[in-house]
């Protein structure tokens, strides 16, 4: 359960990071409020993920955090590529 939460925290951080990039902003425009929210998520979610990992296992927490983070990043990257492809096809 904790591992799933860590994965989701990292995934939301990566999602927010990509949405804040100008190239993605053109396809999925953000309001000023959402931009602030995304910046907040981008800053806080990795910290939350690390805390959860250390809570789960202090000795091996960093390994869990980095491993789940990398896998979450790859998953979001693939999802984002598919969404962008779909969106650009519709435009």
């Amino acid at each position: 359960m904790i591992a799933l939460c860590v994965f989701l925290a990292w995934a939301s951080a990566f999602w927010a990071h990509e949405c804040l990039q100008p190239r993605t902003n053109k396809l999925f425009p953000l309001t000023t409020g959402s931009k602030r929210l995304y910046q907040c998520v981008r800053a806080c979610a990795p910290a939350l993920a690390l805390l959860l990992c250390l809570y789960r296992d202090f000795e091996e927490g960093v390994l869990y955090c980095l491993g789940l983070g990398a896998v979450a990043g790859l998953a979001v990257s693939l999802l984002m590529a598919a969404l962008k492809h779909k969106q650009s096809g519709q435009l």
């Binding site: 990509e18 990039q21 990043g73 790859l74 979001v76």
Partner: peptide, 10 residues
């Protein structure tokens, strides 16, 4: 940093 998860398989 900007291209952290940038992937364009298409």
């Amino acid at each position: 940093w900007p291209d952290l998860i940038l992937f364009r398989p298409f």
